[in-house]
Design a protein around this nucleic acid. Structure first.
Length: 269
DNA sequence: AGGACGCCCTGTTCGC
DNA sequence: TGCGAACAGGGCGTCC
């Protein structure tokens, strides 16, 4: 489920494979993944262009071209990219294929069709249209507090709100809360104010960076991380207590009831 | 207006 | 053994 760290890895992949090659044509195999575009429109806008580089914002990947258009990619739950040097066949579940003049192709692969492919004239226009807050890794501690302090409701729900800050999804919201010893249903205010807020912001940065390195294969997840232990019936990697699984905000939420109980939350605050 | 919830979509898993 | 139901979840629309 591509969240901010996953999309960072996809960005590295796209930049390492698909830049500076002229687009011959765009093949849309399933229109359901198009975001405000038609197959013909997408082909017209990208045809003859080359990708110059990419800009990630939250879970979105925006690809700059040498024309007046950016390609926008969102990966939903099961989306990924697949570049092939010789594009004689297409990968399974390839929904959109950008074919280059050199015979290579970049495929947008998305089995469950929850991802989206579109275009935008500029990055700010796209962020405005999608109502996205600042990228979670490009905001300082003060901005983090300011975006969240007035919110009511659950801390986990607030961390996952893309209009407050962009990039955190279900898995890394749980990981941040686990590392910071907050309960998913804790109120937002006490968690983001003062020293506790700065600690939570630091934890958030650390989790997203650590996860990126793990997903990129440059290291593995630390033994103290929750993410590799999300399966049902697992125990807390820090204290051994049985992990809890509940729905919070409609999403499966995994946490340690001992370390992230109300007592732990109060100690942290 | 902000928060809660249902729905989209389909591969996988579970239960009878 | 086989088939259908439930589940997963990011984002969006809708409702309160």
């Amino acid at each position: 489920m591509p969240e901010l760290p996953d999309v960072r890895v996809l960005e590295e992949y796209l930049d390492a494979t698909a830049l500076h090659q002229e687009v011959a044509k765009v093949r849309v195999r399933d229109e359901a993944v198009l975001d405000g575009e038609t197959p013909a429109g997408l082909g017209r806008k990208l045809g003859g262009r080359s990708f110059l580089g990419s800009h990630r914002h939250g879970k979105h990947l925006l690809v700059e071209t040498d024309g007046a258009v950016w390609l926008t990619l969102h990966f939903g739950m099961t989306g990924e990219l697949a570049y092939r040097r010789k594009a004689d066949t297409h990968p399974e579940y390839a929904r959109v294929e950008v074919r280059f003049r050199n015979g290579a192709a970049l495929a947008f692969v998305c089995p469950r069709k929850l991802g989206r492919v579109g275009t935008t004239a500029s990055v700010p226009a796209f962020l405005d249209r999608k109502d996205l807050g600042p990228d979670a890794l490009r905001m300082d501690a003060a901005a983090f507090r300011k975006r969240l302090e007035k919110r009511r409701g659950f801390l986990k729900t607030a961390l996952m709100d893309q209009s407050a800050l962009a990039g955190i999804g279900n898995v890394y919201a749980d990981e941040i809360l686990f590392q910071a010893a907050f309960h998913p249903r804790d109120p937002v205010g006490p968690a983001v104010e003062g020293d506790a807020g700065r600690d939570l912001w630091l934890t958030l940065q650390g989790v997203l960076d650590t996860a990126t390195e793990a997903l990129a294969g440059r290291r593995s997840f630390p033994d103290t991380y929750l993410t590799p232990h999300r399966e049902e019936g697992a125990s807390c990697p820090r204290c051994g207590a049985e992990l809890a699984r509940e729905k919070v905000g409609g999403r499966v939420t995994c946490y340690c009831p001992r370390r992230q109980g109300e007592e732990a939350a109060q100690e942290a605050a």
